[in-house]
Design a binder for these strands. Sequence first.
DNA 1: GCCATCTTTGACATTACAGTCAAGATTGAC
DNA 2: GTCAATCTTGACTGTAATGTCAAAGATGGC
Lengths: 196, 196
Amino acid sequence: MAGVRQFDEDDALDKALTVFWQNGFSGTTMQDLAEATGVQRGSLYNAYRDKEALFLKVFGVYRARYVAQMRDILDQADLREALHGFFDWAINSMTMGAPSRGCLSTKTAMGVEALDETIRSAIRDLLDEIEAALCDRFSRSPAAEQLALPPREAARLAVTMTRGLVVVERVYRDRKRLRAMARLLIDLLLPAEKLR
Amino acid sequence: MAGVRQFDEDDALDKALTVFWQNGFSGTTMQDLAEATGVQRGSLYNAYRDKEALFLKVFGVYRARYVAQMRDILDQADLREALHGFFDWAINSMTMGAPSRGCLSTKTAMGVEALDETIRSAIRDLLDEIEAALCDRFSRSPAAEQLALPPREAARLAVTMTRGLVVVERVYRDRKRLRAMARLLIDLLLPAEKLR
DNA sequence: GCCATCTTTGACATTACAGTCAAGATTGAC
DNA sequence: GTCAATCTTGACTGTAATGTCAAAGATGGC
């Protein structure tokens, strides 16, 4: 196999992820990616065909990391703490950077005007995975008994809420508000432990 | 006052709103607006200075209509029905069109990469107004006693949830899912009446 | 009817971006 | 060491968008 890739692919994808996350899909230019990765535009086209294919590759990295981290955080004995941990982590993640980078999947879903079917399905897969991770955690005894809703429904509600938080973050830029919202939802989902 | 405007401003703003709503701020070009309104690009620039100023004018129309309609819908005796009416209306509104037009404020908040401060503050004002409308309704007796949360908090949670619904709509394109989510939230907010 | 004032019109300048391509560089296989 | 496959490079093309401007057109006030 002669004529071998000159750049470190993992490193390049990682740097590209940072750029996409900060600027969104349509807000990122191939020039931006070339500068961030140190790989020339032409090489990126050669390696990944076009901007969308490169994005999907980067999105795969994002997705794997996201789900692994959230599963790790959810994996603690106390359900309330697991949920707090999850929301804190999500809120910290989206408020990182200046201006705050937000959420890549939400940015992409809402940011591209004519949402490409391939991209949309990649985002849907991620949301499905997030839902599944929450659902798994909620199905574990004794979580199911503590919840005000069946696991699947509680999971979907939590997923929807995190997406709402991303939008609210973008508009209000107020971490306190986000934390308060998360706390409200947790209190509603775990009524038995609601001791004010 | 010689040299008078040749086009009907209300009509033009209304048509521009349709375009912005369907395509978002950055996805809409002045050419699109010229075609939709029947007003030449140059005239639009002359009348509104630039794309952003025109958008803000259009957004004002959107905001007034949105809040008036939602206040009207919330204004029915039974709180549960008022909430169902509100969410149904919001869901119908965002799933209208093909592809569904979504929510103008959310699209704009998430779609513009470097969110302009003026636009962001216009969106924040709208969300504040939506929250206030919900809060007013929740503060009306006997709503406050039926709610699992204080009015302000319940209102904020509902606002966050509608934003989440918009994102979920864009990804899943499934009205049933949206309705189910809305129902879950309503059931959590009105625990006393939770009779399955 | 005349004029000052604003609007309309279409061409123009500028910028920005996605994607292409041919020539040259690199390197593993033999 | 040679070769062929692949990668790299930078210039080029094509397209699309925003905003500007000068000339022409319309109109209310007098």
